[in-house]
């Protein structure tokens, strides 16, 4: 069939072409205005769902950073508490060294005993440091002060975090990665004389008794028991330091992840502005050309040339 081109065909085609060009223009206009490559899932279903996944993991990364920062605060406070305990225990050791020599007389031993009592109070005070309202050495009993003042040397927290069967203070520091961050006060200070556990408070209370009794040989034995405890505190501090180190590493890794996820998200979701603008310009030119061509085509007719 030889093609007859009729007036309405010309009009329809011109109109259809104009529509398609202006449709493209509108889409480019939207893209450059919103700066987004994908504004609805149907623009690109696969990349839209990928972008959603990236947003979710971006937010997760930010949350994990907040979690790690919180855990760092906890670890710092624990370190503070342990540092307090260590320095007071060292002072106690100095006093003990002084009192254990046979030259020390009963009066000076008694006054040292009084000083020692104060140090015990200070140590229990140091163990009662809190972070955001939680006593850091109380295990999961975060609202109970681990050690009361005065003669009560029993530990009022629990063993959570130390005893693996109890959930301790845990932070999620990565997707599926959790970390127990608390140190249990009983492990460091013990429960005092009644428990007979040879922990710091037991040893110091014994020393006070021996000072009052003027028992030189026992005091020398207490000194070596105190040294064992100081060593143990060092170990606990080292463990806490290692945790802080791990948190530091986790944080910098999370920051890197955040940056790279942000980059990927932008690559998936954001429009290439330079490219979009160039396309916009060339489509505008195409639109004007189509308008001009259409106008010429629709206007002219044989009538113009018949007299």
């Amino acid at each position: 069939m030889s093609t007859r081109i009729t007036t309405s065909m010309v009009q329809r085609n011109v109109l259809a072409d104009l529509n398609s060009v202006s449709g493209k223009l509108t889409r480019l206009q939207m893209k450059s205005a919103s700066g987004k490559e994908i504004s609805r899932p149907s623009d690109d279903p696969f990349h839209a769902s990928q972008a959603m996944a990236m947003r979710q993991s971006l937010e997760a990364t930010r949350q994990h950073q907040r979690n790690v920062q919180d855990a760092q605060g906890w670890a710092d406070m624990t370190e503070d508490a342990l540092d307090d305990i260590t320095s007071n225990a060292s002072l106690a050791r100095d006093l003990l060294v002084q009192a254990s020599t046979d030259s020390a007389d009963p009066t000076s031993r008694k006054s040292i005993a009084a000083e020692m009592e104060q140090l015990i109070e200070a140590i229990k005070q140091g163990a009662s440091k809190s972070y955001r309202g939680s006593y850091v050495l109380s295990g999961a009993e975060t609202t109970s002060r681990p050690y009361a003042g005065g003669a009560d040397d029993t530990y009022h927290g629990d063993e959570a975090g130390f005893d693996p069967t109890l959930p301790g203070i845990v932070r999620e520091i990565g997707p599926g990665v959790t970390m127990t961050i608390n140190t249990v006060g009983r492990d460091v200070l013990g429960d005092g004389q009644t428990a007979n556990d040879n922990k710091l408070l037991h040893v110091l209370r014994d020393a006070v008794d021996h000072l009052n009794a003027g028992d030189g040989p026992s005091l020398r034995a207490d000194l070596s028991r105190l040294d064992t405890n100081l060593d143990h505190i060092l170990e606990v501090r080292a463990a806490n330091g290692a945790r802080a180190q791990r948190l530091e590493t986790a944080l910098s890794r999370l920051q890197q992840t955040e940056e790279s996820t942000l980059g990927q998200l932008s690559e998936t979701e954001d429009a290439d502005i330079a490219k979009t603008l160039i396309e916009l310009n060339s489509q505008t030119a195409a639109y004007q050309a189509a308008l001009r061509a259409g106008a010429n085509l629709v206007q002219s007719s044989l009538m113009d040339f018949l007299r």
Binding site: E141, T143, I169, V170, P175
Partner: peptide
């Protein structure tokens, strides 16, 4: 928030880990 003593938050943690 948690199964144990007042400071435990293991339930909250378990819910948070449902993410993604």
């Amino acid at each position: 928030a948690g199964s144990g003593a007042s400071g435990t938050t293991d339930y909250a943690l378990a819910v948070a880990q449902l993410r993604d």
